[in-house]
Amino acid sequence: MEKRVIFKGWLLPLLLLMPQVIITAVFFFYPAGQAIWQSLFIPDPFGLKSQFVGLGNFEFLLGDPYYRASFVTTAIFSGLVTIFSMGIALYLALLADRLIKGAGTYRTLLIWPYAVAPAVAGVLWLFMFNTRVGVVSWYLGLLGYDWNHVLNQTEAMGLVVAASSWGRISYNFLFFLAGLQAIPRSVIEAAAIDGARFWTRFRTIVWPLLSPTTFFLLVVNVVYAFFETFGVIHTITGGGPQQATTILVYKVYSDGFVGQDLGSSAAQSVILLLVVGLLTVIQFKFIERRVHY
């Protein structure tokens, strides 16, 4: 059942809404509108002249096999980042939830990586896995494995996924732990008395009751993997090798800011806007139905 508070008149509600509306307009509607407008032109970098090409930029992009491949790369990348960061976080949260001694320390330590900015995390992982001077690649070398993410596409993807997931585990862990602690003990204890083992309790009680948290994290993590992982990719692989880690948002950057092709870059932002919008609609329409609040 929805709660409603009814205001009299319209001036006060409008006034109260204004700050949010203004912020959204200035920081979202205006730039998004600009991007849509720009995507119809091929401008020169300095903005001295530009040519109207209609949907030419979109045609160029969709005809480019590397752009289409970037969709697949993005899907694989964000899928893996979401699964790993949420899966590991849930596992850790379940363990932390059962801890009695030292729980505080354990939790604090787990939250630390969240404070590390993506670009810094990227450099950190790059140092560990550097093909020549990295500690991890050196040990792998001792085991007879020749690590080279500079040339090997799978290894490059694995590395950026690991680096992007790492910092994110902390964030997810916090939410999962809070979610777990919000589940009434009595329900779980009652199930235990009825003879339900841990796995049964998790499947039939914890997981359904945790679903609002899981759903929220799913949305947030997909958006994270789409946009905020830029720093990690920029520092570790620069989109390579052979575009194996060029996700959509990285391509927007490299076409717009390295290639100075602002028309194509704007068109890509518009496509990205549509994709994320669509993903969110799908999530709310179909996945949310299975969520128990």
């Binding site: 500079v150 040339l151 090798p241 390295v258 092709d261």
Partner: peptide, 16 residues
């Protein structure tokens, strides 16, 4: 600058 990026990618494919 971007063409160099493309060349880098293709050369990496040869080295690999």
């Amino acid at each position: 600058d971007q063409i160099r990026g493309i060349i880098d990618e293709e050369l990496e494919a040869v080295w690999a």
